[in-house]
């Protein structure tokens, strides 16, 4: 029994080791948070310095201070223009991903449909967004519809590909298990395939969150009067570089928020460790 009990000095040493470990962890975490911030601040400083030293005129590039002032004074204008863009991006995101999930489900159950239509999908995907945009504007008019359609199209492809892969890459023995249990196709889909696909789906959704915003903005470039995209075009024509930069910052801030929301949703939904490295 005496060997089992630990000597006080040994116990203290083990506790000290643990304390040191926790302190190291804490400082590492702090560093992980602070370093990116330092990077951003450094870059803004460099930008301010370059604009000042090279005497860049404000119609070519604004100083960071000017952009900050614009962000504050034009906040109302920026927000009224962010609203339609956000609506288009989110609507397109929902529509495109929903369609992709639905079609992936059909493809997995009807192989011949996949073989017939997957090449078509690939072909459409090779058309760049800037080329798709005018076509859709002609087709759908000048409202929100073509922007939503573009955002949806841009989300569609990555989600479709990932979803098909996620639904199909099921452990073959788990499929056999379902058969031994005489599970129906629907049961196998909901109890096995769909859950198996969730980690794949979320990787695609995270990409889609930022591309949907890009899609909406590109859509607004063509004959639109409101939205982040329209504002970008207007401020460029007006040589209002400060407004241009402020608009871009608002657009990316929205993208980042969208991305973070999806990441949060993923953490809540996918609580297990995916079976294989993917």
């Amino acid at each position: 029994m005496s060997e089992m009990a630990m000597s006080p000095s040994r116990e203290a040493a083990i506790r000290a080791e643990r304390d040191a470990f926790l302190a190291r962890q804490k400082s590492a975490r702090l560093k992980r948070r602070l370093l990116p911030l330092a990077g951003v601040i450094g870059l803004i400083g460099l930008w301010a310095l370059l604009v000042y030293v090279l005497k860049v005129p404000p119609f070519v590039a604004p100083s960071p201070q000017l952009v900050a002032v614009t962000l504050v004074t034009k906040f109302d204008v920026l927000m009224t223009n962010l609203f339609p863009t956000a609506v288009e991006a989110i609507a397109g995101f929902l529509l495109g991903n929903f369609a992709a999930i639905l079609i992936a489900t059909v493809f997995v159950h009807k192989k011949s449909l996949e073989q017939a239509f997957f090449p078509v999908v690939v072909l459409i995907n090779t058309i760049p967004v800037v080329a798709k945009a005018p076509i859709l504007v002609l087709l759908l008019g000048n409202g929100m519809e073509p922007k939503i359609a573009i955002a949806a199209l841009i989300c569609f492809f990555p989600t479709l590909v990932n979803m098909v892969r996620g639904l199909e890459s099921v452990n073959p023995q788990a499929l056999e298990l379902m058969r031994v249990l005489s599970a129906s196709k629907t049961e196998t889909f909901f109890k096995l395939r769909l859950l198996n696909a969730l980690p794949y789906l979320f990787s695609a959704l995270k990409i889609a969150a930022s591309t949907a915003v890009i899609g909406a903005i590109v859509g607004e470039w063509i004959g639109s009067t409101t939205g982040i995209g329209a504002l970008i075009i207007q401020s460029t024509y007006n040589f209002d570089s400060a407004m241009l930069y402020a608009t871009v910052i608002v657009g990316s801030a929205f993208s980042v928020l969208f991305f973070l929301a999806i990441t949060l949703a993923e953490r809540l939904v996918v609580r297990w460790q995916p079976a294989s490295g993917h």
Binding site: L177, L181, A183, K191, P274
Partner: peptide, 20 residues
């Protein structure tokens, strides 16, 4: 061939949820 999103108990319960 356990389902990774199910706990041990939920995995054992699977046969009760499928196949009628």
């Amino acid at each position: 061939a356990l389902l990774p999103w199910r706990t041990a108990l939920q995995n054992v319960e699977l046969p009760l949820e499928v196949g009628g």
